[in-house]
């Protein structure tokens, strides 16, 4: 077992423990904070797979953005007043069956897929290559991303606002 394997198992264990606590914890705030551990673990796995840009994007977007959103979501709930804010388990049998089915499917796919292994040469910074691809080969999809973000922004603002008090514009 070399240093790479050791780092992999350490980071994978971190991600798995975080994910397990997120699912099993009855307290929503604990679950949200353990999701941080899971997200960081996934970022570490990306880094180990030589996807440096993806790893940093994972930290910026998921840890810095989506998790904040989730925490706000938890703190915005009405039942926050009673500190017994807990997740409940409904239909354990059906849920367990579905989860087992998905697990079997995922393991089969992972087992049967001919995974491409990264050659040693490819383990260099990827940001410039991604930028080049955006600017040369994927110009239209790149601009389309902007459009998707615009739709997401306006839609999120519309939905997020609808339950807030009417804005001062009277619109």
């Amino acid at each position: 077992m070399n240093a790479y394997d050791l780092a992999f198992y350490l980071i994978a264990a971190m991600a798995l423990v975080g994910a397990a606590i997120t699912v099993l914890s009855r307290r929503l705030v604990y679950a949200a904070f353990n999701l941080l551990l899971a997200f960081l673990g996934v970022a570490g796995l990306y880094a180990l797979l030589a996807a440096d840009f993806l790893a940093i994007a994972q930290v910026i977007v998921y840890v810095g953005g989506i998790l904040v959103l989730l925490l706000f979501g938890v703190m915005l709930t009405h039942r926050i007043y009673d500190t017994t804010l807990k997740s409940v388990r409904v239909q354990p049998l059906l849920g367990g069956l579905v989860a087992a089915g998905v697990a079997v499917l995922l393991i089969r796919v992972a087992w049967n897929t001919p995974w491409n292994t990264t050659p040693e040469l490819a383990r260099e910074p990827t940001t410039a290559k991604i930028g080049e691809a955006f600017m040369k080969h994927y110009v239209f999809p790149f601009e389309f991303v902007s459009l998707i973000l615009l739709v997401a922004l306006i839609g999120a603002a519309l939905i997020g606002r609808s339950r807030a008090p009417k804005s001062g514009n009277g619109r």
């Binding site: 953005g65 904040v68 959103l69 940001t127 973000l149 922004l153 606002r161």
Partner: peptide, 24 residues
């Protein structure tokens, strides 16, 4: 706060796209 966080998230994704652009 939630709405501000949503707007923040969108522009954060935008900033992520700025990095590879700035490099090349």
């Amino acid at each position: 706060y939630y709405l501000i966080a949503l707007v923040f998230l969108i522009f954060e994704v935008e900033v992520v796209f700025l990095y590879p652009w700035a490099v090349v």
